[in-house]
């Protein structure tokens, strides 16, 4: 019961956002919720899939060891949900809708349904700042910076690749730079 009401509210909320009407396609179907619990962001399963696809395009981890452990898109959501202010969170939600809207305009389909090449090309354009849409830039910046943060601060990079030493046990202030 509660779920239904919440979904209705969510849909109404979507409708009140300027331009969001375009986002409600004829084929709209109620989707699953996001796979992690969020306090401030209202992320459906579809939006989560979209974000996961975008993040994988920004920084592909599928071929890396421990590919499944990265979950960078969930880290992005966690950080935006917990560590950003309300304005940023609002921009994030606006921006993710703008992103999908632009994708539909350019690819003729939902971003997540595009081919790998279509997705990559589209992300390239967004990355280059060639897509102008409401809060798209703000959204993309948040996604990319937390994707990079999540990657650099991952067990794979810090521990496996030894980019971080927990116990250096030394200090040399005149270490030669290898030429």
């Amino acid at each position: 019961m509660n779920n239904i009401i919440n979904r209705r509210i969510a849909i109404q909320h979507l409708l009140t956002v300027a331009g969001a009407a375009l986002l409600i396609p004829a084929c709209y179907e109620p989707s699953k919720k996001a796979s992690i619990q969020l306090i401030n962001l209202n992320i459906s399963g579809d939006l989560e899939t979209l974000l996961a696809t975008l993040v994988e395009n920004i920084l592909p981890t599928k071929n890396l060891p421990k590919a499944k452990s990265f979950n960078l898109h969930l880290f992005v959501l966690k950080m935006v949900d917990d560590c950003h202010n309300e304005q940023d969170q609002h921009d994030f939600m606006e921006g993710i809708r703008s992103f999908e809207k632009q994708a539909r305009q350019h690819l003729g389909k939902s971003f997540a349904k595009g081919s790998a090449d279509e997705q990559a090309a589209f992300v390239q354009e967004v990355n280059a700042g060639n897509m102008k849409a409401d809060k798209l830039e703000e959204f993309y910046k948040m996604v990319k910076s937390h994707t990079i943060q999540g990657f650099l601060y991952s067990e794979y990079v810090m521990k496996d690749l030894k980019k971080y030493e927990l116990v250096p046990g030394r200090y040399n202030g005149y270490a030669p730079v290898a030429s």
Partner: peptide
């Protein structure tokens, strides 16, 4: 004390709250 940076939920950042 022995936690790696990635073991912190927010990678050692404070939440907005």
């Amino acid at each position: 004390t022995n936690m790696y940076p990635y073991e912190f939920e927010h990678r050692n950042q404070l939440t907005f709250k």
